[in-house]
Nucleic acid binder design. Structure first.
Lengths: 215, 215
DNA sequence: ATAGATGGAGAGTAGAACTATCCGCAGTGG
DNA sequence: CCACTGCGGATAGTTCTACTCTCCATCTAT
């Protein structure tokens, strides 16, 4: 198929498709003559993935390019792809090093040791957690620090199930794509479901702590 | 104190402080003469809150303004503030209405009914969840849909504890600020901790499913 | 043969978040 | 008293991102 059809089938403008081609988010089509090309189903699929990561996952074009490069490099391990995805999702936080940061780092290290988690020192999540805890301390709020253990306890079995669901896939391409989607869309899904659960819990509390509405 | 000191104590440039004043993120200082003003501790605190929401929470300047306006309007209820915060955090997703969206909506409604959650139809999280589920279906992945119940089951007690921790605060100002910080920074914290848990779970699985590293 | 895509490249645009420059007045040290 | 640095307020300029537009020399279908 040609750009016009690719555009029609994905809802992405031809101009944007050309832009994504230039930026390397989309592989070039197969040449049919020196200056004509044709695109296949894999382009449709890839383009939809790109839009999902950008629109729903909130990744930048550059971040998406990096993630997809990791997905395409089929010689790298799954954890590499996940690392790239997490980098794109969490961004590069500014490295400050004050008292609050140090205390936050210690708090997290203790937690990791206590629960026996196996995380590498370069895990992008680690930096992000430390920064958030430090920020929260600087603002004088202890709500998050107080809930840290609860978060870890809750997320541990959840993460196990997520990883289990992803590796259950048959071929590598599928595993990798599921991992990326699960990481990016899953984060959004959890965040959004959490706000729903907040409203529900808050309504419950306000109405006298009677869990189900009727029955 | 005057801008220079406010700038020094918060690490925000004078130019940015002026910008935030113009945009209404920061209330004007107290006039000491027709064209001089002085700022207090509350400005320091507010400015730090602004930077936390923007830098760590990833909110836009406009979103931050809206959230702070809700925080300041002390006649509105807590759930109003939370609604504004969730709006700023989740953004306004494009309203598409195809088969996938409809199925996703049904899937979520069933879940809500099954668990007896009390969420209003206008909850911003609802739109976001539906959009993510629909996107995931369009991409042909069923990983998220399969985990939906697990997510809900996991988040329900977590949300209850979070709401409990927030309302345990004494005065309203404190409750509101904790709620905002808990929502925004908590989302980031969960997301980051989750990636750590993923790495840990993945390492566990790779090394033969022996949960703790040693012992 | 000709009207309408197409590929490729470069320039242009819109929005967000600052950042810089000006100007007239304020407060302060000498 | 007065030079001088700082301040507030307003406007204009900058940088970055993610497109979007315009060309033009083909190519393709009719």
């Amino acid at each position: 198929m040609r750009v016009a059809e690719l555009s029609r089938r994905t809802g992405v403008s031809v101009a944007s498709i050309k832009y994504y081609l230039r930026e390397g988010l989309l592989p070039p089509g197969e040449r049919t003559s020196p200056n004509q090309a044709s695109y296949g189903e894999e382009h449709v699929r890839r383009l939809r993935l790109v839009r999902a990561l950008i629109d729903v996952g909130g990744l930048s074009v550059a971040g998406t390019r990096d993630v997809l490069a990791a997905v395409d490099a089929d010689d790298v391990a799954l954890h590499h792809v996940l690392g790239a995805t997490q980098d794109a999702l969490l961004g590069e936080p500014a490295a400050t090093d004050d008292d609050a940061t140090e205390r936050a780092g210690k708090l997290l290290d203790d937690l990791v040791a206590r629960r026996g988690w196996r995380v590498t020192p370069t895990n992008p999540g680690r930096r992000a957690v430390v920064e958030i805890l430090a920020t929260s301390e600087r603002l004088g709020t202890d709500v998050l620090a107080g809930l840290l253990d609860t978060y870890a306890e809750t997320l541990e079995p959840l993460a196990r199930r997520e990883v289990g669901a992803v590796v259950a896939r048959s071929d590598r391409e599928d595993v990798v794509e599921s991992a990326v989607l699960g990481t990016v869309l899953g984060a959004g899904l959890i965040s959004a479901l959490r706000t729903m659960a907040h409203e529900s819990a808050s309504a419950e509390l306000a109405s006298g702590a009677a869990p189900p509405p009727e029955g």
